[in-house]
Structures are given as structure tokens and as C-alpha cells.
């Protein structure tokens, strides 16, 4: 695998959220892994790096879930309770309801690709950072 090049602006942004590599001098930094090689998860949970990661993840997935559920339920409820509206013919005999249904396909693709992109740019680098800092591999 080739290493992704970070643009200078992005790099600056990333480093702002790191506590800094100076923590190598800190005796605590060595104890992310105990003498048996087991990671100290409670300590990792408290780090800023982990909190940033958690915040980035939840601020994406929960609003997106709300969005696609709302869009899907709109389609379902309109089909069930606004029959005349969704029966409006649009292209030939294809009606608005079928088009709304196909629209769900489009939003699914957009959200999937959007998440893949977001994860690659915002989540994976932070995960890598956390793994390097704590010395705990995946």
C-alpha cells in the first residue's frame, strides 16, 4: 500500500488535535500497554485523540442515520397514506411513487460513497494516529 500524501492544510488541521509527540517524555505514555502486552483501554479511552475520533464518528453516523430513515419513511408513509399524490404519472405510466422509490436507491449510493470518503479522510488518519501513539496495533 502506498502512503497517502496529506495536503499542507489538512496536515495542519490534524496536528492541532494531537496532544503532541512530546508525550513520549511523559512516563504515562509508556503505560498504554501493560507488562503482559495487554492494552490499557481505560487509559486510551481518556485520551484526546480517542475522544476526537469518537466525536468525528458519531457526528457523522447518527445524523446520516436520521436522514436516510426520514427519507425512507417519507416514501413509505406517502405510499400508504397519500395514494393519489404518489399515483401522479410523470414519465409515461411511471408514477411519482416509483420515482421516489428509485430516489432511495440514489440516496443510498450517495450516503455510502459519502461515508467511505469521510472515513478515509477523517476517521482512518485519526485511528492511525491513535494506534501509533498508544503502540497498540489493530
Amino acid at each position: 500500500m502506498t502512503k497517502a500524501m496529506r495536503s499542507p492544510g489538512e496536515a495542519h488541521h490534524e496536528y492541532r488535535e494531537i496532544r503532541g509527540f512530546a508525550s513520549f517524555d511523559d512516563p504515562d505514555a509508556l503505560s498504554y500497554v501493560d507488562s503482559d502486552g495487554r492494552p490499557n483501554f481505560a487509559l486510551i479511552q481518556q485520551t484526546d485523540e480517542f475522544r476526537v475520533l469518537r466525536r468525528r464518528l458519531t457526528t457523522f453516523i447518527f445524523p446520516m442515520t436520521a436522514l436516510f430513515l426520514a427519507s425512507y419513511l417519507t416514501f413509505v408513509l406517502l405510499s400508504a397514506y397519500a395514494k393519489d399524490f404518489v399515483s401522479t404519472k410523470v414519465i409515461g405510466v411511471i408514477n411519482l411513487g416509483i420515482l421516489l422509490g428509485l430516489g432511495q436507491f440514489v440516496t443510498s449510493i450517495i450516503i455510502t460513497l459519502g461515508y467511505a470518503r469521510y472515513a478515509k479522510r477523517r476517521l482512518d488518519p485519526q485511528r492511525k494516529l491513535l494506534a501509533e501513539m498508544t503502540g497498540v496495533e489493530e
Binding site: 475520533l53 469518537r54 464518528l57 494506534a131 498508544t134 497498540v136 496495533e137 489493530e138
Partner: peptide
């Protein structure tokens, strides 16, 4: 669980 679920680190130890 929280650290592993969210970050994936330590998932195979």
C-alpha cells in the same frame, strides 16, 4: 469495548 468498537485498535489481541 468502546475503544475497540470505535477505533479498532487492540481488536486482534
Amino acid at each position: 469495548m468502546e475503544v475497540r468498537a470505535i477505533s479498532g485498535i487492540g481488536a486482534r489481541t
